[in-house]
């Protein structure tokens, strides 16, 4: 269970990225978080991963209060999350197997656990035949599948995906979303931040819309008009998306 109550986040620059957000995400739910650039989606992502602390309000994930959590407990908390990014964030000097095993190694898993778990993830993501490939030898969709396998290998209870299809074509995007849906069916909570209206409409899942730091709608699929889909969003071209990406990466660098 993820519970945010009256959460606000103001950066040191004075920018108020998230304003008085309250929401509940139940265990095993599949939720989309959508909105324009600068709507506060990425800040929300970072608040849940405990990269940022809210200025006001409280965040509780699986019974842990992120505000009062001690620094030394953060790594243990993060092991209950699996994070996926638009730019995959794979280690380019290591092959597929090593990229997935990396997530296990850094939490001190034994070689036996690695030998058992990594092949399972390779099978789940359909990469068994490519375990020796380096990331640059794979397509975008395959690279994202490696990132998903890496996120899953430590058996997290929540998967957080930030624009997982942002760098992929339509076919690969569908494939990745199908994979995330399969993972969700196994009981893992999945939270996907996305711009793609097509994907949101196809998936028929709960959608939280954000704008200027506020939640402007939170709709279950059955509540949406099947003809209209979700509330129309401004049409975005490639340039706008690129601008959004670079702003996010600047934020991370800062």
């Amino acid at each position: 269970m993820i519970r945010l109550q009256h959460v606000s986040k103001m950066y040191e620059t004075g920018n108020r990225a998230v304003r008085d957000i309250s929401l509940d995400i139940k265990d095993g739910e599949f939720v989309f978080i959508s909105g324009k650039s600068g709507s506060g989606k990425s800040t929300l992502f970072k608040l849940i991963t405990r990269e940022l602390l809210p200025t006001e309000g409280s965040i509780e994930v699986n019974g842990s209060d992120l505000l009062t959590m001690r620094r030394r407990d953060i790594p243990r908390y993060r092991r209950t999350l699996g994070v996926i990014f638009q730019d995959f964030r794979l280690l380019n000097d290591r092959n597929v197997f090593e990229n997935i095993a990396f997530a296990q190694r850094v939490i001190g898993a034994s070689p036996r656990e690695i030998r058992e778990n990594v092949p399972k993830m390779l099978q789940l993501t359909g990469l068994s035949s490519k375990y020796k490939y380096l990331p640059k030898q794979l397509s975008g969709g395959e690279q994202q599948r490696v990132a998903i396998a890496r996120a899953l290998v430590n058996s997290p209870s929540v998967i957080l995906a930030d624009e997982p299809t942002g760098n992929l074509d339509e076919a690969n995007s569908r494939e990745i979303m199908g994979l995330l849906e399969d993972i969700n069916k196994r009981g893992t909570t999945v939270i996907v931040i996305t711009h793609s209206r097509e994907i949101i409409q196809q998936m028929k899942k709960r959608v939280i819309m954000m704008d200027k730091g506020h939640i402007i709608s939170d709709q279950q699929p059955e509540a949406r008009d099947p003809e209209q889909g979700i509330r129309p969003m401004p049409v975005r071209d490639g340039g706008e998306r690129q601008e959004h990406r670079s702003r996010r990466s600047r934020g991370r660098e800062a």
Partner: peptide
């Protein structure tokens, strides 16, 4: 840098990083 960021997000301890 990149590796450390990933490590941080997948739950590596400060010691491990």
């Amino acid at each position: 840098k990149r590796e450390n960021e990933i490590m941080k997000l997948i739950g590596a301890t400060n010691f491990m990083i």
